[in-house]
Simulated assay, not measured.
Amino acid sequence: MSVGEAVETEPRRRRPGRVIRFALTIGGVLLLLFGVPWWTLAGSGNAWPGPVRVIATVVFALALAAFPLLMFSGHGRHHRDGPAVIADTMLGVVWVLFVWSIIGQLFAAVLWAFGVDSPARSRIATVAVLTVSVVLLVWGYAEARRVPRVRRVEVPLPRLGAGLDGLRLVLLTDTHYGPIERSRWSRRVTEVVNTLDADVVAHTGDIADGLVEQRRSQAAPLADIQASMARVYVTGNHEYFSGAQGWVDHMTELGWEALHNRHVTVTRGGATLVIAGVDDRTAAGSGVPGHHADHEAALAGAGPGLPIVLLAHQPAQIAGAVAHHVDLQISGHTHGGQMWPFHYLVRLDQPVLQGLSRHSEHTQLYTSRGTGFWGPPFRIFAPSEITLLTLRSA
C-alpha cells in the first residue's frame, strides 16, 4: 500500500461523546426534514380549520417518531425487509416534500410581493408543493423501477494497441438488490446486457443491501451475463454492511472474476489490456480481514507500458489511479445524485457526479449514475444507466 492510500485496518471505536453528537445531529436533521414540510403544509399562513391542523400535526409527529425505528430495524444487523421498504419510501417522500416546501415558501414570498393576501397565498403555495411533489414522486418511482437505458460512450486510450481498438466494455454498478424484490428486473437487465455484444462486463460494486442468503435470487441472473473476454467485479461500500467476503465468494461462484486487489489481462490481435480492481476505500475500516484498497497489489506483475483499466467503486479513489498511471478508472457510487437536489451533497464528497472526466495527462475517469437505486425507490432528474464504453486506440 503506497503513501496516500487508506491505512486503517481496524474499525474505529465509538466514543460516548461522538455517539451523543451523532445522535443530536441526526435528531436535528430529522426535525428539519419533517418540520419544514409540516410548517409549509399545515402551519404557516394557511389558516386551516383546527381539526385539519391537529390531524396533520399528528401524522407528521407519528412519522417523525416511527422513521428512525423503522430505519434501524430495516437497515440494522438483521436487514428486515418490511420495515426497510417503509422507511426508505418515507425518506424519499419527506425529502421531496422538504425540498419543495422550501421552494414553496419562496413562491409564497413572490405572491406576497405581487399583493396576494393571506391565507390565499399560503394555500396556493401549499397546493403547488403538493402537486409538484406527487408528480415527481410518481415519475421518480417509475424511473427507479424501469430497466436502465443504455448510455454509449467512446473513450480514447492512447496506449491501447490497435488489436483492441473498439473493445466493448459494459459497466454495471450499484444494483443494490435489496428489500424490494427485483428478480424480474435483474433478469431484464441481463437480457439488455446480452444484446450489447460485450467483450468485457464490469460490476463496480454495491451489488446488494443484505447478505448473499437474502439476495441470492435477485443476483442469480448475473450468472447468465455474457462477455467474450472477461466478467469482473469489485466491492463497493455497501458490501461492507452486507458480508463483503460472502459477496466476493458468491460472484466467483457465479463465474465472475473478483478483482480483490488483483488484475487480469485480455489480449486480441497482439494487443494486451490490464483490467485491475481495488477494494472500496471504506474496506480498510470495515474490520473484514484482508480488505483494503491496495493499488500496488492490484497491479503487481502487470507488464510495464500496458494500458490499464481500473475498477474502483468510488470516484474519490481517482488519486490512487493517477499515482499509478492508470489510463481509465471506472466507478459508480454517486447514483448521479439519485434525487435532485441531493447531487449538491454528493459533490461535497466526490470529485465527479457522472460521466467521463480527465484527472491527469494520462488518467481518465468514467462515473456511472448507477444501474439500480439505493433506499428510496425514486430517481428524480438522475436516470439510471447500463453503460457501453467503447475503447479506442490512438
Rank of each mutant, 00 (worst) to 15 (best):
M1I: 11
S2W: 14
V3A: 14
E5I: 12
R14K: 12
R14Y: 13
P16L: 06
G17H: 03
R18T: 15
A23S: 06
T25Y: 13
L30D: 07
F34E: 05
F34R: 03
T40D: 04
G50F: 15
V54N: 07
I55W: 14
V58T: 07
L64T: 10
A66D: 04
H79V: 12
H79Y: 13
A87P: 06
L91C: 07
V96Y: 00
V96S: 01
F107T: 08
F114V: 15
F114M: 14
S118I: 12
S118L: 15
A120R: 14
R121Q: 12
I124L: 11
A125R: 12
L130E: 00
P148N: 04
L157K: 02
G161E: 03
L169Q: 00
L172F: 06
R182L: 05
W185K: 03
L196E: 01
V200H: 12
H203C: 12
I207G: 11
Q214P: 09
R216V: 08
L222V: 10
A227W: 07
M229V: 10
A230W: 07
R231C: 01
Y233K: 12
N237C: 13
Y240C: 02
Y240A: 06
A244R: 13
G246K: 02
H250C: 01
G255R: 01
G255L: 11
V264C: 04
I275L: 08
A276G: 10
D279H: 15
R281K: 13
G285V: 14
G287A: 11
H291G: 07
G305S: 03
I308E: 02
L311K: 05
Q314L: 04
A316S: 14
F342A: 02
H343I: 00
V346R: 06
L348W: 13
L353R: 01
H359E: 00
S360F: 04
G372V: 06
P377K: 01
F378M: 02
A382Y: 03
I386P: 14
T387L: 07
